[in-house]
């Protein structure tokens, strides 16, 4: 059974980077159900696509990741959320995870780190 993944990041480069990593043979079959560039779009897409997993940036236009996580966690309690953000603001990341995320990967990340983190998220 394939897992459904939603990638949320305001950077096109990061979104595509994460998407490209999903073909790694160690990962279970992953279907990317959406790419969102801001918080509002992320919540809309989460509602319509009901993903199993989400990678989530924190600093985004329209709605920041923290609020976004809160909304999605309320909407889809089964969905696991991986925060992908810079380490400069640990306090924000901690709050975001407390709002309903499951893990954290700091930017910049290596391919290996991202894959291992996703495996851990899916375990």
């Amino acid at each position: 059974m394939t897992s459904r993944l939603l990638i949320v990041d305001d950077s096109n480069i990061i979104r595509n980077h994460i998407a490209r990593l999903m073909v790694d043979p160690r990962l279970p079959g992953i279907e990317i159900v959406g790419l969102a560039g801001d918080g509002r779009k992320a919540v809309e897409m989460a509602r319509s696509t009901r993903p199993d997993y989400i990678t989530m940036d924190l600093t985004m236009p329209h709605m920041n990741g923290e609020t976004c996580i809160g909304e999605i966690a309320g909407l889809l309690p089964e969905t696991r959320i991986l925060v992908v953000s810079a380490l400069s603001d640990k306090a924000t990341a901690l709050r975001a995870i407390a709002r309903g995320a499951h893990g954290f990967v700091h930017k910049p990340f290596s391919d290996e780190t991202m894959i291992q983190s996703l495996l851990e998220l899916m375990s």
Binding site: K90, G100, F104
Partner: peptide, 22 residues
């Protein structure tokens, strides 16, 4: 931050290995 971090460790939902850097 430490208070929040320790709180997360007791949260069953959170993957501990994935918040270590925080």
């Amino acid at each position: 931050s430490a208070r929040e971090y320790i709180g997360l460790l007791f949260n069953k939902r959170v993957k501990v290995a994935l918040v270590k850097s925080l």
